[in-house]
Amino acid sequence: MGTVVRDYMIPANDFTVAGEASSRVRKILTQLGVSPDIVKRTSIAMYEAEINAVIHGNGGNAHVEIDENKIYIRISDEGPGIPDLELAMQEGYSTAPDSIREMGFGAGMGLSNIKKNADILDIQTEVNKGTTVNITVFFNRP
């Protein structure tokens, strides 16, 4: 199989389409015959990152590469950045406003859910510049 590359726009503050990119990637993985466990882990990790970009990052972009060994996802935004990444990684820590909580998110579980489901998680963030979340899921864990 050749490498499948996709790019998606993540619109800001639009909860009706939030998750659309993850949904499309999920469809591609299913069509490629990827095992359900890997599809689920990838979907959860990407969806949480996509939601984060909608909530905190004023939207952004998703870049996805699927080759014979792995799925690589890069979600980048030009939002406010994360001042204290270690704190943000803690379960339950959240800066999301009440309006987001009413949508069922903002419980401070997003980053830890991504970490749990990704084989490699790398976050690059700079205050006032933005955040890039790099997620890798291997088909066979090395």
């Binding site: 009706t16 969806y47 949480e48 949508m103 069922g104 419980a107 579980m109 997003g110 859910n113 749990k116």
Partner: peptide, 24 residues
């Protein structure tokens, strides 16, 4: 009611009961 809690739940053939009602 918290979707992130749902995503921490990993069973298959599952049903979700919720009081939250939105596209997410």
């Amino acid at each position: 009611d918290l979707m992130s809690d749902v995503m921490a739940f990993s069973k298959s053939n599952a049903l979700l009961l919720t009081g939250l009602i939105n596209p997410q």
